[in-house]
Amino acid sequence: MPHKVVSLISVGRHPQSGRSRRAEQDSRAVELGLKLAGTDLDVVHAGNTEEPTLRQYAGMGLPSVTVLEQDEKADAVESLQSYLQSEKVDIVLTGVRAESGESSGMTPYLLAESLGWPMVSRVADIVEVKDGEAQVLLALPRGQRRQVTVKLPFIASIDNAAQAARQSAFGPGLRAKMEAQQGSESVDEIRLNWEEVPAKARPKRLKVVKAKTAADRFKAATAKPQGGSGKVMKNESVEEKAKAIFDLLVEEKVIR
């Protein structure tokens, strides 16, 4: 039985020009979706049917894009949730975070929570989907991968390590159908009161490398962090884990 795969797409933003574009990670989510489901892939956007960037996604060879029509002020999560609930979906692919809007990276988590599905973050590839399970490769730093098995249905956020999106072709993009559905109408009240300002570059923490030789420097640059002070807490209680995080935040002067 073919699996129903949905890729969620948003309007991206070019880091240099600030111009709208297909978002890096979202288009990787479409690429992975095409690999899993071919043109049966359902690509969903919550927003405006007239948005030109949707055509850039469609140019990857999508016959149509489902648009949950909603106002700019509305929250995407609500529309997406009711859409995903009404369709029999097996896998939902999103980017890790959007390039525009709140860019909080919360969409997949909120969807997973409301649907009661597992959420796998930073996926590099989905190797196989069989017997109600998927073999998923997670992207770890420095090109490392971890393979996990996830029960369907689930949500995955796609990392930059995933296969890059194929070229978008103008013709098919232009001809793709935008299939509009009514999205949510409730306004995102919290968001309304926010003010957007350009972000300031964060100061970078200097890495002190005490290497003497070129070989040492090379090692320091490429070795995976030994994380001397870090530890994996598996068996501790939730309170202990929370305490550890809290202590770290204080130590790093994130909270005072």
Binding site: H14, Q16, S17, R19, R21, G59, M60, G61, R166, Q167, S168, A169, F170, G171, P172
Partner: peptide
Amino acid sequence: TMEKGETPNKGSEVLENIIATDNPNGYA
């Protein structure tokens, strides 16, 4: 290019840059 999206090598990247930044290297 326009129907198949098969511009080889750096072609696709350059075109994407031109579309997003009006220059082939993606500078601001």
